[in-house]
Structure formats: C-alpha cells, structure tokens
Design a protein around this nucleic acid. Structure first.
Length: 135
DNA sequence: CTCTTGACCACTC
DNA sequence: AGAGTGGCCAAGA
C-alpha cells in the first residue's frame, strides 16, 4: 500500500485511525459491514476507505489490535460476506470468525440478523446498514 | 489540477 | 441471478 503509511502520519489522527477506533469496539462474536464502520467513524460515504485502512493493518505492529476480521462487506437481505482481495486473507477471516461463534452460510454469508453489530449502543443485533437516501 | 486506484454500496439491465 | 455501471471519498503520481 503505497498510498499512505501509518508511520508517516505526523497528524494526531488520520481518517483510518477513526475506522480502527470503531472496529476495536466490535464485540467478539459479532460482525459488521464497511458501511456501518464508515458511518460510525463519521465518514458515512467513505465505506471504501474502511477496507483501505484495514488493508494496511497487515504489516504494522500497531494494527494488530484491530479485529479486522469482524468487518465484512454488505450483501442484500441483511447479510454480509467476505470481500477481501486476497483469498488467503479471506479464509483466515472466515476461520477467525467461526472460532468466535459466527456461522457462515453455504455461500459464505453471515446473517446480520444474528451476528450484526449496529454500534456501541446497539444491544440487539439488527443492523442493516440503512439505505442511503439516494438522490 | 487531472487521472488512477481501492478489503465498498446500490441501482439497473 | 449474475454482470455492468455510477457514485462515493481520499491519496498518490
């Protein structure tokens, strides 16, 4: 990832740091989507950057504390699926989630109705990333 | 400043 | 149901 390096950040926080902060709050055994992370971090339209930021976690030692595996791509019908570019990383993600109790569908989808996390205040899973008021 | 690139999302064929 | 298209935001060249 040549776009941005965490260690280069002289700034106190960068946009990805906001995402990390939110991701760390995801309870064990729950999953959420990029869109949700982006919204909670204060960048509702920047779902892509969430994945971008998470991609940078692979190397730096600082990112090891972020449960990136709990972030999935949103799929219709309140479901989420792995959208990782690297097949190896995707398999790892799935394995990690399954070890936390998250069950995958035959197609590799997770029910957000059962495992979705809508935010720090949401106790009950239900969380579908709400439809954006499209023009 | 313009163009390209993304672990995305949603709408339309 | 699967594939294509546009929009989104930010950073690098």
């Amino acid at each position: 990832m040549s776009r941005a390096e965490p260690d280069d950040a002289v700034e106190p926080v960068s946009w990805w740091q906001d995402f990390y902060r939110v991701v760390r709050r995801i309870p064990r055994g729950r999953v959420t989507t990029y869109g949700v992370i982006a919204a909670l971090a204060g960048h509702p339209r920047s779902a892509r950057h969430v994945g971008f930021a998470l991609a940078a976690l692979k190397d730096p030692d600082g990112g090891s504390t972020v449960p990136w595996q709990r972030v999935l791509g949103s799929r219709p019908r309140n479901r989420a699926a792995v959208t990782i570019k690297d097949p190896v990383g995707g398999a790892l993600q799935r394995a990690l989630l399954e070890s936390e109790g998250v069950t995958f569908d035959a197609r590799g989808n997770v029910s957000l109705d059962r495992f979705g996390w809508a935010g720090p205040g949401a106790k009950k899973p239900a969380a579908a990333p709400r439809k954006r008021t499209r023009a």
